[in-house]
Design a protein around this nucleic acid. Structure first.
Lengths: 345, 345
DNA sequence: TTGTAGGCGTTATCAG
DNA sequence: CTGATAACGCCTACAA
């Protein structure tokens, strides 16, 4: 009924302003190429008719969708949520729109999402990690879609990735604990399946330990889900083994908070009985009765720079952004020297 | 150099399979209308050439982008992050893609984002709250874009909104505290500016109190940011006034956690000295030394059903989804009767 | 069941 | 500076 066959389009505007469609198009996209007289008349017609340009038609004609796709493992983890926000803001300010999908840490799902995004005509892609579907490189090359891997950094792949040096991060953290005298380490972390970042961090711990000729004992190595309750569970488990660890390194903030809360439940004193350190500085960590030592990663920076880089490449600009992001070991109250007389029978 | 002038498109596939472009199109979109012989030949050609259909062209021709836009105030709050994930999953499974933007609780920004989305040709829109830009209704009507408002529910606007009944939620929670004997209430909440959900919750508190002929005293009414540190700050402030509140109702999980942590710092005993209740059940709440009483909102359900509803409408299906989402007052250890001899001079 | 041809709303090329 | 006109890649009556 009310469905008028011809919604207002470029043509209607042209007619209303008594100019050609080409001129309207120019008035919108390259105003400086249109006389001010016509420009005015056209603008007037545009908002009198309430014309909204059709992005799909424009995309078809220009072969640019002004759209960037991002595929994250999940959105419920603070770091990815922060990065997503930053990406969105940055893109927004440059006139781009964000397409978002989650892979659930599944490489196949990630690949499917990416394919969908390419169908949708994204101009660029933001992914997480360097480990992707084997077919991906081929696909990206053929369609020539600029892509950047986030939350990873290694000098070899400089320029196609942006993030912290995960290995070094935990290498340094471990070193810090070693320097304080710790010798018996436990690790409470999430699965490294399809997660090269977590895997790199684990390697960092092991490398640092190896330099001292020590290693994490099997009974001190606990892998599980990403959650506080899992952190409690795993902390209790590793603390119930001998020799009892004097330092527990947690692979994510939920596990760290869980470990700390369980230490309270177990009647342990942190850091006197055991040191606990985590990864990613979420707000609660600094407010707990014993504040938690952790690693701070500038997720917003990662997201913002990833977006900036992509847009710059697309616009043919040549900006210089740092690909390695700022990180910091935030030393708080949950870490200290090992107990004098450890209960390491 | 390698930039072949003609990327593989529908036409090249047609040639390769020695059929018309129409047939290829049909083989993809309505396979049952194509003889199996040709279908096979075409499929073979498709993946031999590695053809990826061009979504923008398709969108232009069909006037359907299979794209849904969502504008959230922020992504860093757990409830929205969870809803976003659910939306994305639901859309994905139905062959739709999610466009995401954040409004930062700014109504004007929300409007701009929505306009961009409409330019991009979204088939539908998911928003938060019922309070939007005055021009929005007109715009949506003209372009005929189905829209659903999330995280709100009221019987009057049934069908265009989906979420919890925010007012009732806090009405009930307050009632629960009243029934336990509390008379002096403090409220620690975020700003209600451009946030009709928070505003409704506040109204719920006030309505419940009004039934008892009481009200929140000005000095017990603390409005601030969404953060743990703000929660600590505001909690200390309201607890330093007379008469001292025996119950503190917090407007979001960060404020609640902050309030609780500050109670520890102040040497108060919860719930013996003061009851603390929050909104939205985030994991840490149930793991703190004193677990927090709060309201649980099924954000995933909100997101999933919003997406489902929109897709169903677009596909002309007629599904029946609940628009009011499940909620629950989770009573834990942080709430109890008021102290016998309150320090209310 | 398959092919032909025109159109979706813009942009871009090329004359004027 | 402005105006025709041909793409852009796919879909869809309509005809065969």
């Amino acid at each position: 009924m009310t469905d008028q066959g011809s919604l207002v389009g470029l043509r209607q505007v042209a007619i209303a302003a008594n100019v050609s469609t080409a001129t309207v198009s120019r008035a919108i996209n390259t105003p400086h190429l249109v006389s001010s007289k016509l420009r005015e008349r056209i603008n007037e017609a545009v908002d009198r008719l309430g014309w909204v340009p059709d992005g799909t038609a424009r995309a078809l004609a220009t072969k640019r969708s002004h759209t960037i796709g991002a595929v994250f493992p999940t959105l419920t983890h603070g770091d990815f949520a922060r990065a997503t926000t930053a990406i969105q803001q940055e893109l927004q300010s440059k006139g781009y729109t964000l397409l978002l999908a989650c892979s659930d840490y599944e490489i196949e799902q990630e690949f499917q999402q990416i394919k969908k995004f390419i169908e949708r005509g994204v101009d660029g892609l933001i992914l997480v990690g360097e480990h992707h579907h084997p077919e991906l490189a081929k696909l990206l090359a053929r369609r020539n879609v600029p892509t950047i891997n986030t939350f990873v950094y290694s000098s070899e792949t400089h320029g196609t990735c942006i993030g912290p040096d995960n290995r070094k991060l935990f290498f340094d953290m471990t070193k810090y604990l070693i320097d304080m005298g710790h010798e018996v380490f436990a690790v409470v972390a999430q699965s490294v399946e399809n997660n090269d970042r977590a895997e790199a961090r684990l390697r960092g711990i092991q490398d640092a330990l190896a330099e001292e000729g020590i290693a994490v004992r099997p009974q001190h190595f606990a892998i599980g889900q990403w959650s506080i309750s899992e952190g409690r569970h795993l902390f209790r488990r590793v603390m119930s083994t001998l020799p009892r660890p004097t330092a527990v390194i947690c692979g994510n903030p939920s596990l760290a908070v869980g470990a700390y809360l369980e230490s309270i439940a177990m009647g342990l004193s942190v850091p006197d009985d055991v040191s606990i350190v985590g990864y990613d500085d979420i707000e609660v960590m600094s407010h707990l009765p014993v504040s938690l030592t952790t690693v701070r990663v500038q997720s917003e920076q990662v997201g913002r720079n990833a977006a900036r880089y992509l847009v710059a490449r697309l616009e043919g600009e040549d900006i210089d952004i740092p690909f390695q992001c700022d990180t910091e070991i935030v030393i708080r109250d949950s870490s200290g020297p090992p107990p004098r007389n450890p209960a390491s029978a």
